[in-house]
Design a protein around this nucleic acid. Sequence first.
DNA 1: CAAGTATATAAACATACATTTATACGATGT
DNA 2: ACATCGTATAAATGTATGTTTATATACTTG
Lengths: 110, 110
Amino acid sequence: MKEPLTTGTMQSVNLQATAFLAKALADENRLRIIQNLAQGKKSVSRIVEELGISQPLASHHLKELKRALLVTVERSGPFIYYELADPCIMTILTDLNNLAASLLADRTKF
Amino acid sequence: MKEPLTTGTMQSVNLQATAFLAKALADENRLRIIQNLAQGKKSVSRIVEELGISQPLASHHLKELKRALLVTVERSGPFIYYELADPCIMTILTDLNNLAASLLADRTKF
DNA sequence: CAAGTATATAAACATACATTTATACGATGT
DNA sequence: ACATCGTATAAATGTATGTTTATATACTTG
């Protein structure tokens, strides 16, 4: 009788999926895109304009966000529209930002 | 009269700090360490034992977590104890995990 | 001061990733 | 069919990052 395969804790946290999601959020340009998409569905060219990044760079990061299931894609004529897959994404972003601010505030080093 | 420096949205989100924090959370071994430290303050050797990773690797990731202000360090004799800097860290981890699960569940591709 | 334990650091390496430049693809209009 | 616009992809490049192996540092004990 072998041991169960789970080596972790009770409340099973999928660390692999979590790390993957965190990695998708771990780039400032991607966060800017997410924040921009929080205003609603937008085309690539609009994102490029509003964020002032190159079109291939936007395309690359949008691809990563899509890979992480953070955005959904929809074609309409010559335009391709990206949209946040879930409103909760903004909540996480705010939470992360708040934690970051809190950690910076609490640090007692100068 | 020049424009204000902020190019972002109303509720100012420090994307740089947020991306930096996300990057610190974007590694499975670091998440395992955080999850392990959720049980309380622990020495490096204990973390190494319980997670089954090499000592230098643990040391490296602990250094990263410290750099991100996610853990605090304390020496006691020959041992060095690491501790989560803030309980909220576990909340974020759970939230990230929940979002990851939700995104995976909501995807309508097979 | 020598030896052992706990931890950190250095070196070396492979891999991943962000960015740019150039090009291809797809849709639309003439 | 051609030109043009919107977007994606490829190639190239520099840099960052995770991991291992080897070594150094710090503390403790004899």
